[in-house]
Design a protein around this nucleic acid. Structure first.
Lengths: 337, 337
DNA sequence: TTGTACGCGTTATCAA
DNA sequence: TTGATAACGCGTACAA
């Protein structure tokens, strides 16, 4: 593989001159520059990013730490959407992405800092991390620039992007209340997710705001999975048939609830109204189409990358970026009988 | 950031010894090794992969060239699934993934070889590339180990993984013929995709095998998009109401055809049977659930990574890996009236 | 405008 | 069992 040394030899100049010519420095003769560029093209020279990074102290790469990069993560397209957003912005800024492997046990031995430092990534974007993940402390303590998705951590070198999950949930409850629903239940995710806490808070705030009673036994965890949500919703609806509406902390769980309702012979939305969260692709394709709180996940990724690069270049003091969410009324909610 | 030099100083030995100790060489005193490891931990040393790669001539990274990494690529979860499969295998083998940016115009100036050589990736996996993409020639001509998804290119250093698209399509036609369908149309993708050619061939072979007439005007391109497929299917069904079944080269397009049927007041599957291709997540969630030819896209990614590493280490002569596909009969196909 | 010399952090060769 | 020393490919003071 060709190096600047080869070019130097061929052009009869020193490597310094070649380096300067190729990097667009002004203090190099126009003729020599042209000659050098010509030769570079001829021998198909590509700069060695490794060698360059070694001396330049930056790699122009962003590390990606993604938990949901597993087989069933495909159903909700959230991870993918965020990834796409990150990719879009990073690409436009000349940064490449490296996917870290946190899934396999082999790599799990490595600490967060080790992972990042080995590859010498300039910064990291973290997605799908749980509250009790040991990485979280490391992220905070290390001095590696980092942006998290949906996990509020703030620091000199770390920030986050999220949506207003409290407000989003309140929108859902308001919508349900407007339709005359009083007995509203909630299927939440799990206690290891920050969004779950927020969405529950929004649920409760919304209920209070609307003057509705909160039955704490009507708030159950569905583990963010369709199956578990189906199961808990089934029992919930059997035990408390007076429930007329369920707010779910994710669309996937809402799908599970729809199944449970079907099994019990309850029609959606006639007998049971359902509101989801996320607006995944499936939401608008299932029948009936799911009413949900939409998050612009692509934009979350895009803004995360933007925020990270700003932290990197210290061009901004901002450490938090909130994205709008929006109630999308479709076919799973209806006026209470 | 700590280096082996720091450790050497602290331990009172040479860098050579440190290097050997940390890399598990046998010719180093047990005591010194222990001391070195101890110090390494204390000062939080991580090896610099850049420096190592510079001398080792390999980076333990695989480059990913993905075309469908765009916002609407989320609907069909194919790209994501393949990515997950690649990630799974590479992770288990200690390889990291770097996502190349081919989408943005800025990076589009770079040639394939430049992209790969700059980052010094050990190999590349290419997905979603079209027949007329200039990269294709480069992939063949360069000597960079590469595995393509669904593009038959074979070489000393390049191979591919795919499914038997001819056979898959024949399965679809056989199924339709068994149900008594005679007037079968096909919505294909576009001419820049290899799979389109294959699936068309399978369609035709299947029709011949079943003794059915092929109407060439009943084979139209839907560009692999839902919208375009809906449009062409609409016209097709208006012009030729005798059509009772449509085979689509992708599930997304099948969804478009379902819409077209709905607009025309045709019931699926009573008035029109539809078979898709891919078995994306949406396929089993829409109503009626889509009959389709399922591809194990996760496995395609997994096997692609496996094949690539084998080419890399020259442990196998194999350059092609075919994955099974399978007809999944659901609710969009029915006996012809 | 150009060249010399050094350093980035590592591994590898050879000699001690 | 250990240590100098030379690479790897590049950028950059400093000198010319």
């Amino acid at each position: 593989m060709a190096t600047i040394k080869d070019i130097a030899k061929l052009a009869g100049v020193s490597v310094t001159t070649v380096s300067r010519a190729l990097n667009g420095y002004s203090d190099v003769n126009a003729d020599t520059r042209k000659r050098i560029e010509q030769i570079a093209k001829e021998i198909e020279y590509s700069p060695n990013a490794l060698a360059r990074s070694l001396v330049m102290k930056h790699t122009k790469t962003i590390g990606l730490l993604v938990s949901g990069l597993s087989r069933d993560g495909a159903k909700d397209n959230i991870v993918f959407d965020v990834l796409t957003g990150i990719n879009e912005y990073c690409g436009s800024m000349g940064y490449d992405l490296v996917l870290f492997n946190t899934t396999t046990s082999k790599q799990k031995e490595k600490t967060y800092a080790q992972l990042c430092r080995e590859r010498r990534v300039d910064g990291v974007i973290v997605q799908g991390i749980k509250k009790d993940d040991p990485y979280l402390i490391e992220i905070f303590d290390s001095n590696i620039p980092c942006v998290l998705i949906d996990v509020p951590v703030e620091n000199e070198h770390t920030g986050y992007v999220s949506t207003d999950n409290v407000d989003g949930s309140m929108k859902a409850i308001r919508h349900l209340a407007e339709l005359g629903h009083i007995n509203i239940a909630m299927i939440n995710g799990h206690d290891q997710a920050y969004v779950s806490k927020e969405r529950r808070k929004g649920f409760e705030l919304g209920m209070v705001e609307e003057g509705l009673d909160i039955h704490s036994e009507w708030i159950v965890n569905g583990e963010f999975t369709e199956l578990k949500a189906e199961e808990v919703a089934y029992h919930l609806l059997v035990d408390s048939p007076e429930i007329t509406a369920i707010f779910c902390a994710s669309d996937l769980m809402a799908l599970g609830v729809m199944r449970a309702a079907f099994e019990l012979g309850k029609r959606v939305p006639d007998d049971l109204s359902i509101v989801g969260y996320d607006d995944i692709t499936l939401a608008s394709y299932v029948t009936p189409a799911l009413t949900t709180i939409a998050q612009d996940t692509f934009r979350m990724g895009y803004e995360a990358a933007d925020l990270l690069l700003k932290i990197l270049h210290q061009t901004d003091e901002k450490r938090v970026q909130l994205i709008d969410n929006e109630l999308k009324v479709r076919k799973t909610t209806k006026r209470c009988k």
